[in-house]
Design a protein around this nucleic acid. Structure first.
Lengths: 159, 159
DNA sequence: ATATTTTATATTGTGCGCAATATATTTGCG
DNA sequence: CGCAAATATATTGCGCACAATATAAAATAT
């Protein structure tokens, strides 16, 4: 074998598969970071990090929900959410209260400031759309493909 | 306004744009995490984290390169790479040496073990392909679309 | 040649993201 | 009922990611 890459060897399919540029995972990984960087200045104005923004998006659709519920919607666990939610509570955007029906559950509710922030967030998607330099239709088609891939990957994990 | 969501109001385009399920960024973000979780057991066997795997992929293609060069290929800065590379050095997969031509530059070279690890990594892409439950063609087409989006996002940042 | 600017890497601090573990509550089984 | 298993959240530790800053070397300007 030519594991040192010194001797000449015909590139195999396995070689091609290891090329960085052929990795869809790297495409996804690096695009996620690119999104993060584009969002940064927009979210700074809202006082949110990107994961915090996702939590707020989820809560603007439906709040008074358990941490577990949020975790399922965002694919995050309590190890990530608990400290993040504590920071949102410190920022007075949400309240965390133990459920009286089930003392294990912590319910997350928006504060008035949390609700109001939604208005300031309305301009964000438009800025992102402009930065992506795509039509809404193109982005939504791509989104559907990526989500389908994500769901297949998650299905494998569930086995 | 109905920022509290209490009064009835016709959903606007801005409302739709704020829905979590409509966010391509969330699709990308959650897919990146899904990939991470699928890779985890495969990379554990190699003793690598996912970002370390990406660095190794880059180095298997071309090593004896500056940290800067690696950073440009992976879209990462020295704040991320320096500690990561120190860990790969501690694992004896790479060597870090100051360039004699330009004392600012740290050159990254694979050790023999680093080269050898490539053979163990050959099985990884195949496992990922199986988990994605797609054809190579479908994945590559999707990859190209995502990369095009990433490059447009990065172009905006460069302005 | 010296001073200024630029470049390459390293360091520090904050916030994820997740595995592993801990704690408390609830559910279900006998 | 009493106890084991399951469930929900919290905690700890590690490794990114990145902004801000520091340091040192090289390039450039004057």
């Amino acid at each position: 074998m030519d594991s040192m890459g010194i001797m000449a060897r015909k590139p195999t399919a396995a070689d091609q598969a290891l090329r960085l540029d052929n990795q869809i995972c790297f495409a996804v990984y690096s695009t996620a970071h690119a999104f993060n960087r584009v969002y940064k200045p927009l979210l700074d104005r809202l006082g949110l990090t990107y994961p915090q923004y996702l939590v707020m998006l989820a809560l603007w659709e439906r709040d008074d929900v358990a941490v577990k519920d949020l975790g399922e919607r965002l694919f995050l666990d309590s190890g990530t959410l608990t400290p993040l939610l504590k920071r949102l509570e410190a920022a007075e955007l949400i309240r965390r209260t133990r459920s009286t029906e089930d003392e294990r559950v912590v319910l997350i509710a928006l504060t008035p400031q949390g609700h109001v922030l939604r208005e300031k967030a309305r301009a964000v998607p438009q800025s992102i759309l402009a930065a992506s330099d795509c039509t809404v239709g193109e982005l939504m088609a791509m989104k559907d493909e990526i989500v389908a891939l994500r769901d297949r990957l998650n299905a494998v994990l569930g086995e």
